[in-house]
């Protein structure tokens, strides 16, 4: 009984999470441009336009590469930092945690302007690398928090056991700690990717001239009206992210069955 209630509750929360997204996805098929509900007519024209719109496709590629890069960098750095924070005792630990989390504490506009001032001091131009490093900084606290929370839950005994059985610290990390950390690593990487993918404020300031990400592209459309091509893009992405792994899983199962 209790479990059913929990399941019901979880389903309700998922529905809440998806309601606005469903709206956006449905509107991708609306024939009218500023339409809302009721939908006036079914049409695939926005998908066609999206496909032809080089600017959006390019922006999507930029966002995607940036997101992946951010996920890799932030997760690697974040894991190392959390390990040090959780596993070793040293004075001023609470302050260092604050320090690591500080990028989320600073309003992005200000962080963005500050970093630009610093670059000017170094006489460096804005570049894609800056954007990548900047996003990593913004995503880092998310990774640190989730990995740290998980590490606290992993008992130190396992690592100590491995060490006492003759494993070196590196082996211990890769064979004991990292596998136990996997859910947090996965979650942290997801966080980092989505944060980078969805970032507007800082991106506007840091991007090199002429390069657009999906959010900045949308931001520019706000003055007039956001084109439903953006809805179509959302639809395509969701279909890909859910569809591809499902299909890959299905295919893998199909082939293993065949081999038997």
């Amino acid at each position: 009984m209790g479990w059913n209630l929990i399941r019901l509750y979880a389903v309700a929360v998922y529905i809440f999470m998806f309601a606005p997204v469903a709206v956006v996805l449905l509107l991708a098929f609306n024939s009218s441009q500023f339409g809302g509900f009721p939908i006036e007519g079914f049409s695939l024209q926005w998908f066609e336009k999206l496909y032809e719109n080089e600017a959006i496709v390019r922006a999507f590629k930029t966002s995607f590469v940036l997101g992946i890069g951010t996920a890799i960098l932030a997760t690697t750095i974040g894991i190392l930092a959390s390990l040090a924070l959780v596993r070793y005792r040293f004075p001023g630990k609470a302050w260092i945690t604050t320090f690591l989390i500080s990028p989320v504490l600073v309003p992005e506009t200000v962080l963005a302007v500050g970093l630009l001032l610093f670059l000017r001091w170094l006489s460096m131009p804005r570049s894609f690398a800056l954007l990548l490093i900047g996003h990593t900084i913004i995503a880092l606290p998310f990774v640190v928090l989730v990995v740290q929370a998980r590490l606290v839950g992993i008992r130190k005994d396992y690592e100590e056991a491995a060490l006492s059985l003759g494993a070196n610290p590196l082996q211990t990390f890769f064979q004991i700690t990292l596998p136990l950390l996997m859910p947090a690593v996965f979650a942290g990487a997801l966080f980092a990717f989505t944060i980078s993918f969805d970032n507007i404020t800082a991106t506007i300031f840091w991007r090199p001239a002429g390069s657009e990400t999906v959010p900045t592209q949308i931001f520019g459309m706000l003055r007039n009206s956001v084109s439903p091509e953006i809805n179509a893009l959302g639809f395509v992405m969701i279909v890909i992210t859910v569809g591809v792994p499902l299909m890959a899983g299905g295919l893998a199962r199909y082939f293993t069955r065949k081999q038997r």
């Binding site: 630009l116 670059l119 506007i204 300031f205 001239a209 390069s211 900045t216 592209q217 520019g220």
Partner: peptide, 23 residues
């Protein structure tokens, strides 16, 4: 090389921070 902005105050802020009109 064209890009979309959110308004001119944003551009002025960027130019001021960078100290040049590069880009």
């Amino acid at each position: 090389i064209d890009s979309a902005f959110g308004g001119e105050s944003e551009v002025l802020t960027k130019i001021k921070a960078a100290g040049s009109i590069d880009g």
